[in-house]
Design a protein around this nucleic acid. Structure first.
Lengths: 256, 256
DNA sequence: CCGTACGATGTACAGTGTACAACGTACGGA
DNA sequence: TCCGTACGTTGTACACTGTACATCGTACGG
């Protein structure tokens, strides 16, 4: 199943996200709650990855039959929306006022990076249409303050935030995929590389790709691996901040 | 199934990528070729998305039984590697020598953007471990030349390219997910928004999220949609180039 | 005290990747 | 020339997914 938010009926999903649900008047007492189901799903995803969150598995962890979940959640698509909006809502939002803008933007990036470290699956969910819940709204409201007072118009303000968040998510996705590749293949990066190396040495002609051979070897040696998530993130964040700096102070030289 | 490259046996996958396969001495003539299978899979993915590439569907499009595919390809994981390395190999690689570095980097970004426009599925494949085939190698070798002569050491050179490619892939992913959300839900972005709007107006309090309400409205009005892929790409690419500029010329003010 | 709203669940279905065994073909060696 | 065998092809089967549907039992409103 494709993991994507906002794939269900829009109004029904919104009602759930904003917890606009009234208790039933008649009939047996519900044995679970929406929050309980969502919390269990998040725990399961944190521990074993989003692929482990199947309706059967989740039901088992809650001690009910699989179909019981459909009493609380219309389907898996809506469950994903709820999971994502919930972890958004839980993010700490430290006050950013008074800090220089680079520190403010760095704080936003760091908070998102930590979100994705705690919940790697969150980086891999497709948010072509974001879950319009209270968590998402609070997150957006807070993160916009990092770009306040820089002279950006509202359109650029939104674009700048999208740019920063896109970078952090891409870095987190790369890291999550890198880690998942190791987990699922049962081979560490080293083992994988070692089992590919002998054959690659036979078919790969360094003379045909001289720069690739040199740079690839240097990067691999520097990081002890083909890919180093922390280095990619820190290098990238510096570039992102420098790139925004040109937007923030667009006229460095003025005729006096 | 999780879509990920390099999920199969490393040596066997490499042998396939480098087409190190000898024709069988005895037995019936093969009715298909590896290249034919891969080309059909790419066509199918281009036309109907990666989700449409199932072994049964692909076999049907080739006029064979599903299990016949396993004669040519060890499994779906290896098929994905082959698909990706093949579209990499097909990318045009215009000579970049003589251009200013911003134009060179822009050309690399544009070439990747066009790859992802032609093959949107390629942006969504997880490349935690890249397919180490001839296409990938040629691509890497060529793209590194965009950063040559800028005074970067090899480690920064690799990091800079990774940064640019990461940005383009993230933008393409966002665009592909955005488009897929529209396709699969059967609702255009406008229809989705309109069906969410009435309810959202009831629960969303603009006074509680004043900046979000203002900026969101401005961005939505400017683009005629909640998300505008082209704008995000062009805005982002400018920031990426400016961010690299600080790395390329690190000492703008020198004591004379 | 009963009708009914509603939670819980067992079964079933269409779909996935692919393991396995059976079958048929066409060539190398005798 | 002819057979053994390497190898392409395929039908069946299995474990797994999300979830539609019908059924059953519960507990409250009138």
């Amino acid at each position: 199943m494709t993991e994507r938010t906002s794939a269900g009926d829009p109004e029904r999903t919104l009602r759930l996200l904003w917890r606009d649900t009234r208790a039933p008047a008649r009939g047996p007492r519900p044995g679970l709650t929406v929050d309980g189901v969502v919390a269990a799903a998040i725990e399961l995803a944190d521990a074993e990855g989003l692929a482990a969150v199947t309706m059967r598995r989740l039901a088992r962890s809650l001690g009910v039959a699989p179909m019981s979940l459909y009493t609380y959640v219309p389907g898996k698509a809506e469950l994903l929306d709820l999971m994502l909006d919930t972890v958004y809502a839980r993010m700490p939002r430290a006050d950013l006022t008074g800090l220089p803008w680079r520190d403010r933007v760095t704080a936003v990036a760091t908070a998102n990076r930590e979100l994705f470290r705690r919940h790697p699956w969150a980086a891999t969910v497709s948010t072509g249409r974001p879950p319009l819940g209270p968590g998402q709204m609070a997150k957006y409201e807070h993160e916009l303050t990092a770009f306040a007072g820089l002279g950006l118009d509202d359109v650029d303000l939104d674009a700048a935030l999208t740019f920063v968040l896109g970078f952090v998510q891409a870095a987190a996705r790369a890291e999550a995929e890198f880690a998942a590749a190791g987990r699922d293949s049962g081979l560490t990066d080293e083992q994988w590389w070692e089992s590919a190396q002998p054959y690659l040495a036979r078919v790969f002609d360094p003379a045909a790709y001289p720069t690739a051979a040199r740079v690839g070897a240097a990067a691999g040696a520097a990081h002890g691996a083909a890919y180093h998530p922390d280095h990619a993130y820190e290098f990238g964040l510096r570039r992102v901040l420098d790139g925004l700096a040109a937007l923030v102070s667009p006229a460095p030289r003025r005729v006096p």
